[in-house]
Design a protein around this nucleic acid. Structure first.
Length: 377
DNA sequence: GTTATTTGACCCAA
DNA sequence: TTGGGTCAAATAAC
């Protein structure tokens, strides 16, 4: 087993070096002008690296877990190769420059179960118009098994549904309820993920110009960063919001210096346990991730929906949230004077080489009301 | 009666 | 010609 461990560690080193291969970066730059982003490939590579890290941690531990990790690495690698071969870089649009995000994006749209899925990458045959300007995020269902994603704080009216070639689930088309009365041009497309029916890919087009806002939307300070608004509203369905311990002037922000991991199997009942942003490592079995449905600053434990997730599922879910948050906050914010920079230092998502990416400006947000929390049962 | 959803038809870029 | 996106009449829900 020591030989095997040594061999695996060697492979890990190779994978790490490959990920930093300048040729790869150059190739992505070549494709940058075609499709608007190489983020997806970087995302997949980051995903691979993360899986390798986990494999590294668990070497010598559970053989089953190592096997699972190896399978996930294989699947993600295959998909990345497929992307490169097809020249398809249909990742979400890179955030605008100027917010310290010039380095590769971190998981703009990671597929939470991408590691679980063995589905090879398929080139997207969508027409060009549908690729322009869309901001894609992946969200969980409102409740486990629900047939729609969690409420994003906006009022939508469904105007169509289509079966999409190669997709297991139809795509639903929504427009803002106030399109006719106020000329609001915001639309969104919702499609259940093939890999996991509990997840939905949501693509937002256009910005809300309507004035009807729910309490969730009202948390966003008026006049600030409207471009990020809809994304933040989408995040509102997945982020726990709390007010204690955060101040706009404080430079401490919140940082997770311990590796992200999950505690032992879920206990009976759905009551959220003690609030703890990050847990100590333990058995990666079932866990619960809080899924509050509102951005209202309320105690984190009230009114939260919970859904059962696998550790990898939950981890990717959080990566999606954070990356969307980063993208949202990187958009130019008008009228903001105080810039507060917070640093994410979570080993599960980023590493030192991507530190620049992890310093993001949250001045556009109500920093008193944002936090990402994980409830473990 | 009003509003939202469903669904087949249509449009049009690829 | 194909297939994604939208329209609009029919239907359902409130």
């Amino acid at each position: 087993t020591s030989d095997l461990t040594f061999a695996l560690r060697n492979q890990i080193g190779i994978l790490h070096r490959r990920e930093r291969n300048p040729e790869q970066i150059e190739m992505e730059a070549v494709h940058e002008g075609n499709g608007g982003g190489s983020g997806l490939v970087v995302t997949e590579l980051s995903h691979i690296k993360e899986l390798v890290k986990q494999l590294d941690v668990h070497l010598g531990g559970s053989p089953d877990l190592c096997k699972l990790l190896a399978q996930q690495i294989f699947a993600v690698t295959e998909r990345s190769i497929g992307m490169i071969r097809s020249g398809h870089f249909n990742g979400p649009k890179r955030p605008a420059a100027g917010a310290g995000l010039d380095s590769p994006p971190l998981s703009p749209t990671p597929s939470p179960l991408s590691g679980v899925s063995n589905t090879p990458f398929k080139p997207n045959k969508k027409r060009k118009t549908s690729e322009k300007g869309g901001r894609q995020i992946r969200v969980s269902s409102a409740a486990g098994g629900a047939d729609a994603p969690a409420d994003d704080g906006r009022s939508w009216r469904k105007y169509g549904q289509k079966d999409i070639l190669g997709a297991q689930h139809p795509r639903a088309y929504y427009r803002c309820t106030y399109q006719k009365t106020q000329g609001c041009a915001a639309t969104k497309q919702v499609q259940r993920a093939d890999e996991d029916p509990a997840l939905f890919d949501v693509i937002y087009h256009g910005e809300h110009t309507c004035v009807h806002k729910t309490a969730a939307a009202a948390v966003q300070p008026a006049g600030q960063n409207p471009g990020a608004e809809s994304l933040l509203q989408s995040l509102s369905s997945s982020l726990t919001v709390k007010t204690e311990g955060l101040t706009a002037a404080g430079a401490q922000g919140w940082s997770a210096t311990t590796p992200f991991s999950f505690s032992s199997p879920a206990v009976s009942g759905m009551t959220p346990p003690e609030h703890h942003p990050f847990s100590t490592p333990s058995t990666p079995e079932n866990c619960f991730v809080s899924m509050p449905t509102s951005l209202e600053p309320s105690p984190a434990t009230s009114g939260s929906n919970h859904m059962c997730m696998t550790p990898f599922h939950a981890q990717s879910e959080l990566q999606t949230m954070v990356s969307a948050l980063v993208e949202a906050t990187s958009m130019p914010a008008a009228g903001t004077e105080e810039a507060a920079f917070y640093t994410f230092q979570s080993d599960w998502s980023f590493d030192d080489s991507a530190l620049d990416v992890n310093n993001f400006d949250v001045s556009a947000l109500d920093v008193n009301n944002f936090d990402v929390s994980v409830f473990l049962a």
